[in-house]
């Protein structure tokens, strides 16, 4: 059962490229055809050094993750797990050509009484994305909820 002892648990580090095709595909999958996501000249005219990544783009790092058993390693019951929240804090632009290193850890565990009995557990997973210059670009926090069982 997940508890406070998990806070700080290291969930691994991986590196992946921000590539032009993936940025285009990501923006298009979200119905966005603005040329800033496909045309480097348009992006430069808007003040970026290259084509910018859309706000939620870092989630596509999932393609570079090995099959993992994160939910099980957190001692959560997959049948009762929901994605409760997601958040991003932006510190530096992410653009095509960047190499991002993602470092993931458990940042919080909170328990409270569930609405339908049992104990609800909320586990926050924080992933920091650092670029090839060592600058923190984005901090992404997911809140995973295990409903009362």
């Amino acid at each position: 059962m997940a508890d406070e002892s998990l806070i700080g648990k290291d969930l691994g580090t991986m590196t992946f490229p921000v590539d032009r095709s993936k940025v285009r595909e990501f923006a298009r999958s979200l119905g966005d055809r603005d040329p800033i996501y496909t045309d480097v000249e348009v992006a430069r005219a808007a003040g970026f050094t290259n084509i910018p990544a859309p706000p939620t783009f870092v989630v596509s790092s999932a393609h570079w993750r090995e099959e993992d058993n994160m939910i099980e390693s957190l001692e959560l019951d997959l049948r009762r797990v929901l994605h409760g929240e997601a958040g991003w804090e932006y510190f530096a632009p992410i653009v095509v050509g960047d190499e991002l290193t993602a470092t993931r850890r458990v940042s919080d565990v909170v328990k409270r009484d569930g609405k339908r009995g049992g104990t609800m557990t909320m586990v926050s997973i924080q992933t920091e994305y650092t670029n090839q210059r060592g600058e923190l670009a984005v901090r992404h926090t997911d809140v995973i909820v295990e409903t009362g069982g």
Binding site: I36, E85, G87
Partner: peptide, 12 residues
């Protein structure tokens, strides 16, 4: 503007 988003948090 994409350069000016400082934080974005969603609750499902």
């Amino acid at each position: 503007g994409p350069a000016h988003v400082r934080a974005y948090r969603i609750r499902f």
